[in-house]
Design a binder for these strands. Structure first.
Length: 341
DNA sequence: AAGCAGCTCAACCGCACAGCA
DNA sequence: CTGCTGTGCGGTTGAGCTGCT
């Protein structure tokens, strides 16, 4: 037996609200408030509506200061950023956009932004991003180096990291983020961040055609070997489930995942910096400013946190083959698409 | 002008969760 | 602790609108 319905379905009106109903509801709430009980409200207000329907109508349409109409570029950026970070948590996203409702944003995403985003990705790549992803079949994306990415003026990404949108930080420095996951970064990073959440840059990225899928393992190794990089930045951690337990098993990170992708002997002949492992605090980037390449894998503990720093390094890199990849198999197609611009 | 397809968005549905008795 | 109830949320639906043929 299911739970009892919230109202008598037979005796409630459904469908679009009439202006009379709107004014009844508005007047009642302005006069008496909701009384903390939406179920009882329609009867008190003389409406033949379900309480849930009244609540929805009020929140999405009648409530004061509701903003209707076109979304601004800034709002687009916020939605893109938050969606990339938290996915379809529309109420949380709406909380960052005064006057917008979760329903509005959801509709806007589904009808406009999603298409905008997917339109930036060529069909040949799109199909590689279609779920289901399994941890045994990771997909990766090659990101160009990025002079093109170096001029993106926004502090958005930093402000929208996993924790900050719940409790906006008073400051947005690296140390406040470090306390979130225990990772540490060198203060030698430039304080003016170059970020990747500007929607116009998304288009640039696509038009430039430098986003393309690659495969793990052999192809990654090939790139590493063939591009003659002398300096590499390695960040992130394992994509394999066994690696996730490396720490508990007492296995060194280097043995667990780094060696999986870097050929034997590579490290001995190249300068390598690691940063942002999910189970290693080895990330000192003091000497990473002259990178000729970035090589990394992001995982859930890293994304939305130090990805920004990694991207900044990529943008500062002189390499022609910076590499950023992930499996992130638990993310939606839209989310995955967003991470790699 | 009619028919059709695609799009938009208000509204609904059902589930999860929190609070309370 | 358990069960009930109200609330909030995300996914989905479908009526109305728009534009194309």
């Amino acid at each position: 037996m299911g739970r009892a319905p919230c109202c008598d379905k037979a005796n409630v009106k459904k469908g679009p609200w009439s202006p009379e109903e709107d004014s009844k509801l508005k007047e009642f709430i302005e006069k008496y408030g909701t009384g903390g009980n939406w179920i009882a409200l329609p009867q008190k207000a003389g409406l033949k509506r379900c309480g849930k329907s009244c609540r929805l109508r009020w929140l999405n349409y009648l409530r004061p200061n509701i903003k209707h109409g076109e979304f601004s570029d800034e709002e687009d950026r916020i939605i893109f950023s938050l969606f990339a970070t938290i996915g379809s948590r529309w109420s949380i996203i709406a909380a960052q956009l005064p006057g917008r409702t979760d329903n509005d944003i959801k509709n806007y995403w589904n009808t406009k932004l999603k298409k905008k985003l997917m339109g930036m990705i060529p069909p040949s790549q799109r199909k590689l991003m279609i779920p289901p992803f399994s941890s045994s079949t990771p997909h990766s994306y090659l990101v160009s180096p990025s002079s093109q990415l170096s001029s993106l003026p926004s502090s958005l990404y930093r402000e929208c990291t996993t924790t900050s949108f719940y409790n906006p930080p008073s400051s947005s420095n690296s140390s406040s983020r470090s306390s979130i996951t225990g990772l540490e970064f060198s203060p030698s990073f430039p304080s003016s961040a170059t970020l990747l959440t500007d929607s116009s840059s998304l288009f640039q990225a696509q038009e430039g055609g430098f986003l393309c899928p690659i495969q793990y393992d052999s192809s990654v190794k090939d790139i590493v070997v063939n591009n003659n990089n002398n300096n590499m930045l390695v960040f992130g951690s394992s994509e394999r489930s066994d690696c996730s337990y490396g720490r508990e098993m007492g296995v060194k990170q280097e043995e667990m995942d780094f060696q999986s992708y870097i050929p034997n002997g590579f490290e001995g002949n190249h300068h390598v910096q690691r940063v942002g492992s999910s189970y290693s605090n080895s990330g000192s980037c003091d000497n990473a400013n002259n990178l000729s390449g970035c090589f990394g894998e992001t995982d859930s503990s890293v994304l939305g946190y130090d990805l920004e720093d990694v991207k900044r390094l990529i943008s500062n890199s002189s390499s022609s083959s910076s590499l950023l990849f992930t499996d992130e198999s638990n993310k939606t197609e839209d989310q995955r698409a967003l991470y790699y611009f």
